[in-house]
Every structure is written in structure tokens, then in C-alpha cells.
Design a protein around this nucleic acid. Structure first.
Lengths: 191, 191
DNA sequence: GTTTTCATGGTACGACTGTACCATCAAGCG
DNA sequence: CGCTTGATGGTACAGTCGTACCATGAAAAC
């Protein structure tokens, strides 16, 4: 069987466990059972647990960026700057099943990433920075703020979205309420 | 020796470990060593590990709210609504040693709280909600926004602050940059 | 056809983990 | 004085963890 396919299957099993029970519940044996393979196979395709965890984070990053892209693309043509910003931020806000899955799984990785310096930087999670620059460009293009302030506004907006996502995951409010808060602030920006 | 004092000592040891190495590194033995007591004593004062973790979270919550209060009080009299908002939000942004300690330790608890439904609600962390209402009142009093929008603005502001805090902890930017983003948005609100 | 390589299974090992159990010592109380 | 109660120490137990080791079958290479 194809190596990459197998690795992905096992990686997805890890992400399912991380989503449902958190990373601390993700032992090698648990992942093997979830993927329907033997413990030895998990060891075979990922020599060590760290390798498995890192691969899982990479898969998750792929899925997240794919979701953002498809969300923007679904806005139809031509996408206005306002639509780009709206589409990007709503893509990473846990409002539907998929985004809830992605954000919650990412949250499961959060403490691990914090406790492991260099995990985010080395393994494909410079993504927030990229997103922020993209947002800044769209904000400036849309005339939502002065060009020299776009970076600041973008940073604030992305941080707000992440913070709202956390509050949704924590049960403080539901996705609709979070979306309302976000759109209120977006509407204030775009005239 | 006083029971409460002992419990607090051990709880603080737990928080130190959570801050430095994350909660997953906080075993009973590790906590005992950090507190300079025997494993048996940790068991004696906290019958189970869950009890210890919950107590640690409670201590952390105390410290966080104490920090917010003292930060507001340090603004001098009379505190303006703008000062209240500014003081509250900068208190929970990791800009100095103490706030970095508090937020990072809280972040260590984050996944545990998410994975344990009812942990936040049952054990003294309805705090975000309280904070949000307080902010909303100050925003309305300060004329920063229409009274019927103050809840939305407060929610957005608190979410932004939390998101900025996450980015600081994740190494995406430093505390000063986060503070700059926050003050920019606050200045836009208060005339 | 033999041999090497790859993929897979099973299992054992040592190091942890949380918790339970037993012993000891001091203090207070009858 | 004797006895109970609270505080502490040490340690054992059962389970789980990541990882290493050995075996086997199948396919491919020579």
C-alpha cells in the first residue's frame, strides 16, 4: 500500500482522537485502534511519537488553509476585498461542523505547541503571519483603513477572531453570537 | 501546620510546573518535589490528582483577578471609564513578567479545561463573562459606543486581547507590539 | 530458486503514572 | 498513663506509556 496514504490515514486517526478527547488521550495504541491497524504499524510509519504528532499538526495545517481557500473561493467572482476579509475570518471561526472540528483540534495542539519551542516555527505554522499580511493587504485595498495602519488593524481583527473562537470552544457563547460580534466590527470598518 | 497554607504551597508548586513545562509534566511526584514535600503529603492534602488540578485552577483564577484589580487601582483616582477599560485589558495582556506568568499558566490549563466539560463552569471560571459585562458598562459610561452596542464591543475587545495574548505566548510578536495593537483600537474607540 | 527487502504482527521491557496500604511519631485528651 | 487522632514517611501495586525486539509472509531481485 502507498506509504503516504497510510501515513495520512493514521494521521487522521490521531486528529480524530485529538478532537474528541484531547492530545493527552492520544497514545500510540489508541491511535492504532482508531486507525484500525496494529501498534506496530503506527511505529512503522512513524518511527516515534513526536514524528506522529508533528505530522498530525502538518495535516491539520493543510486542512485549515484549504478551508480558508475554499471559503474565499465560494464567495463567487469577483471577490471584493471586503469579501476576502469576511471569508477569511469566518473560515476560522467555529460556526459550522467543519470549522468547529478544525479549531477544536488545533486547540488540542495549543499547549503542546507552547510547551515545545520551535514546533510551530519549524513545522509549517508560520501560517498566522501569512494570514495577517494577506488581511492587511485586503484591508488597505478595500479602503477600510489607512495603508500604514492596515497591519495593525489586520492583527487586531485576526486576534479578535481567534479570541472569539476560543470563547466558542469554551462554551461561553455559540458560533452565531461570535459571528455577530465579528460582523459588527467588520461592518464598522467597511463604511 | 495550617492546612490552607500547605495546600496553597503545593498548589503554587503545581502552577510553577504548569508554567515552566506544561500540565502534562505535572505528575504528583513532580509536584511533590517542586513543593519540597513527600508524595504522600500531596496525596494527604489533595486526595486525588483531579482535586489538585482544580485547586490549582482556582488559585490561578484568584491571582488573575487580583492582578486585574490591582492594575485598575494603580491607575489612581478618579479612574475614568477609559482608564478602567485600558487597565483591565492591559492587565491580562502578557507584557510584563507577572502577566506573562499568569497567561502562560492559564494557557497550560486551556486544553484540560476544554477536554473536561464542566471544569470551567463549576470551578470559578465564569470570570470572562463577568469581565465582559464590566467592560461593557465602562464602555457605555465612557461614551465609547452606543449603549445597546456596548456588549458587542466589549466582547470583541476582550476577544482581541485574548487573541493578542495567544500570539505573544506563541512567539508571533512581543508584548510591546501586542500592546500597540490594543491601544490603537482603544484610541479609535475613545474619540 | 534462492535470497534479500519490505510490510506486518505479536510481544516484552523498563519507566513512568495515580492510588492504596502500612508504619511511625507527636500531641491532645480521657 | 493509655488511647485516639492527625500528620507524615515509605513503599507496593496495577496499569499504561513509548519503544525495541523477534518472527513471518510475500514479493521482488538476482
Amino acid at each position: 500500500m502507498d506509504h503516504d496514504v497510510r501515513r495520512r490515514e493514521i494521521g487522521e486517526a490521531l486528529l480524530r482522537i485529538a478532537y474528541a478527547k484531547g492530545l493527552q488521550a492520544a497514545s500510540m495504541r489508541e491511535v492504532a485502534a482508531e486507525a484500525g491497524v496494529s501498534l506496530r504499524l503506527v511505529q512503522y510509519y512513524f518511527h516515534t511519537k513526536d514524528e506522529l504528532l508533528v505530522a498530525g499538526l502538518a495535516y491539520l495545517g493543510e486542512q485549515l488553509s484549504a478551508r480558508v481557500e475554499s471559503h474565499i473561493r465560494a464567495l463567487g467572482t469577483p471577490p471584493t476585498p471586503r469579501g476576502m476579509v469576511y471569508g477569511t475570518l469566518t473560515a476560522i471561526l467555529p460556526t459550522d461542523e467543519e470549522s468547529r472540528r478544525l479549531t477544536r483540534t488545533y486547540a488540542a495542539y495549543y499547549t503542546l505547541v507552547l510547551a515545545t519551542p520551535g514546533m510551530a516555527t519549524e513545522h509549517g505554522t508560520a501560517y498566522p503571519d501569512l494570514l495577517e499580511r494577506f488581511l492587511a493587504k485586503q484591508l488597505a485595498a478595500g479602503g477600510a483603513c489607512a495603508p500604514d495602519e492596515s497591519a495593525t488593524v489586520a492583527a487586531g481583527l485576526l486576534a479578535m477572531t481567534n479570541g472569539l473562537g476560543s470563547s466558542v470552544l469554551g462554551g461561553q457563547r455559540d458560533g452565531a453570537a461570535a459571528l455577530a460580534v465579528l460582523t459588527y466590527h467588520l461592518d464598522r470598518l467597511f463604511v
